[in-house]
């Protein structure tokens, strides 16, 4: 074995060990507890698959899945459309291009929790005050207090926060489009929208795949901004799966039960990601 090879194995082993200790082991522990009635403290007993059985008749879980998936789809589509538009704009020959690129990256370096609290204030105080000053009935009450509209507030913050990284990835993608292709396209007379839809977008397809995958996965696990803005309310209108697992698992003594919930949720996310990779890969070979 050469030294460089030995070095590679050593580094790999350390990473594997860390991954196992901090990721795999807790996951296995969670699975272990999901087979008990452990409350997070005190005595516990084996209950087999009872927790899993009860999950399927738990109305909270059904509603949380419905919110989480609806939210993830809307937020992922909006994030990708907006980010792609931003990336195309920031890739063009415009003034202050570097500065603007930096500005649009700012949301990523701010903690989503803090951003959530700021938007909480904007939606609860600033917007209603402006709304009532202008006499606009619809804007004079906080949308975060309305069970039918609170999700819109969460989507706005989430899209705002997630667009930064997504835009950067699309920008990187746009750099990979060879200049020759554009030259050939312009000789053929393709400009504007036609050039984008027939030339740029197909070449960007691998980046669309990775961005969709990342945003959907990220939005399925939405947590911080909900805690900061609604706490899952009003009622359970914005209670995502992560919020349900956390709040019921740690505050309501349902540690084992929510562990079972988390295990199933993990499987669901894995299946969704797998499905996405399969379908989008096939579209990349245009």
């Amino acid at each position: 074995m050469t030294t460089s090879r030995r070095f590679a194995y050593t580094v790999g082993a350390v990473a594997l060990l860390a991954f196992f200790a901090f990721h795999t082991l807790p996951a296995l522990q969670g699975f272990f507890y999901s087979l008990t009635n452990y409350r997070g403290y005190g005595d516990w007993e084996w209950v087999g698959l009872k927790n899993y059985e009860l999950l399927f008749s738990d109305a909270r879980v059904g509603r949380a899945y419905r919110f989480t998936f609806g939210f993830a789809v809307v937020a992922a589509v909006l994030t990708n459309v907006i980010s792609l538009a931003l990336a195309v704009g920031l890739n063009g020959r415009i003034a202050f291009r570097r500065t603007l690129r930096a500005v649009f990256f700012v949301p990523n370096i701010l903690s989503l929790l803090i951003v959530g609290y700021i938007f909480n204030f904007i939606f609860s105080s600033a917007v209603p005050q402006i709304g009532s000053a202008l006499g606009v009935e619809a804007l004079s009450t906080s949308i975060l207090g309305n069970p039918d509209l609170a999700w819109v507030g969460i989507v706005v913050v989430s899209v705002w926060g997630a667009s930064a990284v997504t835009t950067i990835i699309y920008l990187a993608g746009l750099q990979t489009v060879p200049v020759e292709v554009y030259e050939a396209a312009s000789i053929d007379g393709a400009t504007g929208w036609r050039r984008f839809s027939r030339v740029t977008f197909p070449i960007l397809m691998p980046f669309v795949t990775i961005n969709t995958l990342l945003t959907v996965k990220g939005f399925l696990m939405v947590f911080d901004q909900i805690i900061a803005m609604t706490g899952g309310g009003p009622g359970d209108a914005t209670r995502s799966m992560s919020v349900l697992i956390f709040s019921a698992g740690f505050n309501a003594g349902e540690f084992a039960y929510q562990s079972a919930n988390a295990i199933i949720f993990f499987v669901v996310i894995a299946l969704v990601s797998l499905f996405q990779v399969r379908t989008m890969r096939s579209r990349e070979r245009v």
């Binding site: 207090g145 069970p147 009622g235 309501a252 349902e254």
Partner: peptide, 15 residues
């Protein structure tokens, strides 16, 4: 009981 989301139910019903 700890697993009952009282505050959430109150918000929903009041609305």
């Amino acid at each position: 009981l700890a697993g009952v989301n009282l505050g959430g139910a109150l918000q929903t019903f009041l609305y």
